[in-house]
Amino acid sequence: MTATLEAAAPTPAAGEIPSFTVTLRIRRFNPEVSEEATWQDFTVEAHGTDRILDALHKIKWDEDGSLTFRRSCAHGVCGSDAMRINGRNRLACKTLLKDVNPEKPITVEPIKGLPVVKDLVVDMEPFFASYREIMPFLITSGNEPSKERYQSPEDRAKFDDTTKCILCAACTSSCPVFWTDGQYFGPAAIVNAHRFIFDSRDEGGSQRLEILNDKEGVWRCRTTFNCTEACPRGIEVTKAIQEVKRAMITRAF
């Protein structure tokens, strides 16, 4: 079924948001019902400002309550609803229908490389396990200062980009190396290592670099830039990985 933008309708009344119909082609999987995943089409009425998440909600709330996906904040900050939309990893709540060609069926699948639990829900544990492995916390020695540690705005800026990560897994699950080798730390873990390696207050850089120098570490990165494209927070992921690689070469540890 093809969606049609109702552009031909008479000029909408002031303030009226034009609506259109759109088809979502969703990858369904429910192990209680079948071992096989299947595609299912749903056609819903949508408004100009609606996002993929709004369309998924319409389906779940009005048509098929069993459609299963994660979501929470609905505006791109909690990282719950990363999914593969028209073949690209995005957040459902940050992707407007009108921006992904609603004239053709929009495909919606779970992110790749992590075990599918049900419909669009994947098991995030392997992802968080990699994150935990790179020691994602400030490491310091000596006594705690009585006031704050000082940090210049310039030093603060060095890791600003990687502090934006919301752990949605869009980058890691867009990485072809991760798809073929689930042992690979993946971009998100490296981004979070970067956030501390380049923090002037941190003293655990060499430990983290050692972890990432592992055969499943940064050197597996093939610089395909999928991760940078996928990041809904606009983090320059590939650049961060390159900076970590460079630190490994230049810093003695």
């Binding site: 916390f137 400030l138 705690e144 200062p145 704050e148 540690r149 000082y150 940090q151 210049s152 705005p153 603060r156 890791f159 600003d160 502090t163 501390f196 923090d199 207050r201 941190d202």
Partner: peptide, 16 residues
């Protein structure tokens, strides 16, 4: 929070 690592914005002299 600062001691736990929170990256606050800083003044020119490096304070929160």
């Amino acid at each position: 929070l600062e001691r736990m690592g929170l990256p606050f914005n800083r003044t020119p002299e490096g304070k929160i």
